[in-house]
Nucleic acid binder design. Sequence first.
DNA 1: AGATTCATGTCGCTA
DNA 2: TAGCGACGTGAATCT
Lengths: 250, 250
Amino acid sequence: MTVTTLHRPTHRDALALLEEAFGDGRMVTMFGRCTVEYDGRAESSLGPGDRLVVCKPDGTILVHTDSQRKPVNWQPPGCTHRASVRDGRLRVRSERSTPTERLDVRFERLEQVSAYEVTDRSDLRLTGSEEDLRQRILDDPALVEEGFVPRATERETAAGPVDIFGEDAEGRPLVVELKRRRVGPSAASQLRRYVEAVDAEFPDEGVRGILVAPSVTDRTRELLDEKGLSFVAAEPVAEADEEEGGDEAT
Amino acid sequence: MTVTTLHRPTHRDALALLEEAFGDGRMVTMFGRCTVEYDGRAESSLGPGDRLVVCKPDGTILVHTDSQRKPVNWQPPGCTHRASVRDGRLRVRSERSTPTERLDVRFERLEQVSAYEVTDRSDLRLTGSEEDLRQRILDDPALVEEGFVPRATERETAAGPVDIFGEDAEGRPLVVELKRRRVGPSAASQLRRYVEAVDAEFPDEGVRGILVAPSVTDRTRELLDEKGLSFVAAEPVAEADEEEGGDEAT
DNA sequence: AGATTCATGTCGCTA
DNA sequence: TAGCGACGTGAATCT
């Protein structure tokens, strides 16, 4: 039996299941009317309402309402959660240090508590990341510009690590900043920061900077132009051929 | 009855409950062995495994494993999710446009399906945000420096909106960038961007920039110094008095 | 543990 | 709708 469920349990029965499940490393969900108090990097208070609470065996706790992707409250992995009954009500407390953070969920009503055994796993395979864009450019540096020769990735500078560092056709240092999607002003600032740091390393060598991304906003384009930086359009994965024959839709 | 639960249901029975719950605007959880395919801003494939799937009435869908705060796969609010049975297996598909994204969850085994009615709500009250820091400084501008006079918040510039714009004791323009927590290099770049934009607006008036945050990293401190920018330490909420008497622990 | 950056970031606001 | 920046960002990587 991989799922144990209590329907409208007493708070004490719920506590018993929670303690058992926490001990077994099972994942738990609770649904009911509760309040939530959080104190740590910030501080928050959530009045009574119907929520889905998820406790994971790695110490994660999530409090979900019926909207939004983000939990209304949570605690990250590595926390220790403990359940107790105070004044006849179930309470789940999750704590951690560095930084010190505490989350308290107090239930007024409990509709359902379930414990799940998770045994089967598979890893996620994802494509379309900045890493894919980097690989694409290392495979074909001409995508950046004719004659570009990559020399290093994640090269350290006084301002932080440069995505791709290399030389242009004339042998001048070239700083390439990659973004997997359309970028705003912060990307231009980031590139500028790296270029200035590299420029300090190679004075009078005419260090250049190129931002590689699918596209840029107008303001970002202006910021790049002002600072003498370039933009080259490229995507993490080659676009589907727009010219005829691209009939792979289902 | 605010919760309906099916234990080890047939895929057709699960489908019936899902369609009913989607129609009623109820929140749904499913637990079982499934695979997940995603295609949109990126692309991913997740092999078979035991997961908790949450469907919210606002169109959010979450696929959680037994670890991490982040779902392994998801779809944001505003998506339309549809359930069906193909080859005797339950499938939940969630789609949206702008950008075009599709998520497919296919179940091999179904341990439990639950539908929850969410009626009771309360809003979250949170303190310790950048907004709190701003209010603190507007209440007492001397926290930035003696003689500082705020003139505007979110003031627009060619490089974006400045958190607090004002004048120093000598009447020179002052750009203040706020951060609720310890900052890295990007904050220095951001401030510099704003200062340069304001400097272009007020040539030869000696525009100054001050970063206000709890603390900065060493490298960020150097970047600020290089560019003639300042740092002032301040937190969103006044720190507890470290000197004696702070005995509120439980 | 701290620093740095990417992310299918998410979310809210505003022009 | 797109642009822009905050977020209790989270998560990975490297020192």
